[in-house]
């Protein structure tokens, strides 16, 4: 979506630390694929495990370059802690959003005041922007329509403010402060 925006700093970073980057991407991808295989087959027979090992080895060699393009930061305890807090906040917001939408649907007069507003974000990586957009889609009353550069186009079911700064504060900030730590 925004290839021309983020490609130049990433390319320079990749050339300086090529080798450890690639090994880390390979190991992460292999672990994810193997865990998904074990969860799907649900058996610890040695034949199943060997097949899964070979398949996930081949796939992770094949898909290693695409994983590097996602630019996911290395694993630390602090990031894991913030990720868990982020998931809890997201879950609470999803439940609040459902009761909000359910109230608007059941009410006979449909109390909606829809509109399209623009908000800003300070996140740099594409993957972080995708997580922010998905979280905004699942939270009360807001829906991401488009992302270009550092602007997000938001459809709001009950518009409280039309100003970009105020809307950024009301919609994006509660997730952005966690995502900024996770992807720093």
């Amino acid at each position: 979506m925004n290839e021309k925006h983020g490609s130049s700093p990433r390319a320079s970073r990749k050339t300086t630390t090529e080798q450890p980057h690639e090994r880390r991407a390979f190991l992460n991808l292999f672990a994810i694929l193997f865990v998904v295989w074990v969860l799907l087959t649900e058996s610890f027979n040695w034949q199943e495990l060997t097949t899964g090992f070979i398949v996930s080895l081949g796939l992770s060699i094949f898909l290693r370059k695409s994983y590097i393009k996602l630019d996911i930061p290395p694993f630390t305890i602090k990031r894991l802690w913030y990720f868990i807090v982020y998931l809890v906040v997201l879950l609470v917001e999803i439940i609040k959003a459902n009761f909000d939408v359910a109230y608007r649907i059941i009410h006979p007069k449909l109390p909606i005041k829809p509109g399209i507003v623009v908000i800003k974000t300070e996140l740099k990586q594409d993957f972080a922007k995708m997580m922010l957009a998905n979280s905004i889609t699942l939270t009360p009353g807001t829906f991401t329509l488009d992302i270009i550069g550092d602007r997000l186009l938001i459809h709001w079911i009950y518009v409280r403010t039309e100003d970009t700064e105020r809307a950024t504060e009301m919609i994006g900030n509660k997730f952005e402060k966690y995502l900024k730590v996770i992807f720093s």
């Binding site: 999803i94 439940i95 959003a97 459902n98 939408v101 359910a102 608007r104 649907i105 449909l110 909606i112 829809p114 399209i116 889609t137 699942l138 009353g141 829906f143 329509l145 459809h155 079911i157």
Partner: peptide, 18 residues
């Protein structure tokens, strides 16, 4: 019930996901 595409998407996405 909702009047246009975007409001339908809002209701459909949030409620059916949870």
């Amino acid at each position: 019930r909702m009047p246009d595409v975007y409001n339908r998407l809002q209701a459909g996405t949030k409620c059916t996901t949870l």
